[in-house]
Amino acid sequence: MKRHICVKLGALLLAAVCMSNAWAAPRIAVVDFENKSQYGGWKVGRGAADMLTTELVKETDFDIYERDRLNAVLDEQNLGQSGLMDVSTAAKVGKLIGVEYIVTGAVTEYGDSSAGGGGGGVHVGKKGYYATVDVRLVDVNTARIVFADTGNGNKASMNVRVFGFGGGEGWNEKHASEAMRGAIQELTQKLADADLEGGGIGGSVSAQPILLADVAGSAIILNAGSGAGLTSGDTLTVKRKGREIKDPATGAILKVTYDTIGTIKLTNVEAAYAEAKVASGSGFKVGDIAE
C-alpha cells in the first residue's frame, strides 16, 4: 500500500514538473531604446525602456532580465546601450545572458503642442503632450524579429488667463511622462497578448522572412515595410541560404547555414514594402534574406 502511494505521489510530482516546464514564462530582456524625437536626448530612450520593464513585471508573467545586470554586461562586452542595436547583435546579447527574447525599440515621437483662444479678456489655452514608441521582439535563437508594434500616449491640460493674469504652461515633465507611460502601457498589453509561451505568433508578429524583391544596381526593394516593423534609417544584414545539414539516419534538417552578402540601409518605408540602398557588399539577388 505504501509503495502504491509513493508511486502515485511520484507520478503527480513528475506531472507537475512537466506542466511547469510546458508553461515556463518566456525570458525577456529590454535594452535601452533609441530616441529619434527632437527632445530629451538619450535619457528619453533609457526612460522608455525602464518604463516598459516595470510594466512587463507588473502586468505580465514574463521572466524579465534585470536591467542593471544587462547594462553591466553590455558595458563589459563593449556593445553600447544607445538603442542602435541591430538584430544580430541583439541575438548575440540574448545568448550571452541566457534569455529567449530581446526587446529593442525607439521613441519616434515625444513632445508637446499648444492651442487656445478666447475673447473679452479671457484666454483659454490647451497644452498637449504626446509620445510614440516602436518596439521589436527579437528571437535570440533565430535572430529574427518575431513581433513589432507601436504604442501611442497623450496627455492634455488646460490653463486660463483673465486680462493677462494667470498663465500658460511651460514644459511639464510630469505630464510628458504620463503621455510616455500611456504609450508604454499600450505596448505592454500588445506584448502580453502575443502568444510567446506557445511559440506561436500573436498580435503583430510576422512569421515570414523579409526578402529582397527587386535589385537594380545599388537600389533595393524589400517585400515588407512598416507592417513588419521596419523604419527608415534601419540598417539590415543581407544573407543567402547556404547548406542544409541533415541527420544521416532520419534525413531531418539539423541546421541551415547562411552566407552574409552585405548590408543595406532603408531610405523609404511604406506599409507593404521598403526601399533601400546598398551600404556594403555586392552580388545581391532577388530572394536574399534581410535581417
Rank of each mutant, 00 (worst) to 15 (best):
S280G: 11
G287H: 07
L236I: 04
M180W: 01
E197M: 08
K285V: 15
E173A: 09
K155W: 01
E178F: 03
M158R: 15
A290M: 13
E173P: 00
T237A: 07
N268D: 15
G199V: 11
G287A: 13
S282H: 05
I210T: 12
N154K: 06
G198S: 09
G217P: 07
H175Y: 04
I221H: 07
I253C: 06
N223Q: 08
L196E: 07
A252K: 05
N159F: 14
T250Q: 07
A194R: 02
G287M: 07
D288S: 00
G251L: 04
G203T: 03
F163P: 06
K277T: 14
T188C: 08
T235P: 04
I264T: 07
V238G: 03
D288F: 02
G151D: 09
R243S: 11
G167D: 08
A224E: 07
A183T: 02
A271I: 12
A224L: 06
T237E: 06
G242A: 07
E270D: 15
T188H: 03
K277I: 14
V286W: 10
T260E: 15
S282D: 15
K241S: 00
V162E: 09
L212G: 03
N152T: 12
I253V: 15
I253R: 14
H175V: 08
F284Y: 10
S157R: 00
L211G: 02
V256N: 14
P248G: 02
G242W: 04
S232P: 03
N268Q: 15
D234H: 10
G203R: 06
V286D: 04
K190C: 09
T267R: 14
G287Y: 04
S177N: 08
K285D: 15
G281Y: 04
K255S: 04
T250I: 01
Q208T: 14
I210M: 10
A192R: 15
A176L: 11
S282R: 03
K190E: 09
M158S: 11
G164T: 09
L212T: 05
A219C: 00
L187I: 10
I261L: 15
P248F: 00
N154C: 00
P248C: 00
E244L: 00
V215E: 01
A252E: 09
R161A: 05
F163Q: 12
G262Y: 08
T267C: 05
T231R: 10
D234S: 09
N159A: 10
V238T: 01
Q185E: 14
K174W: 07
G281Q: 04
N159K: 01
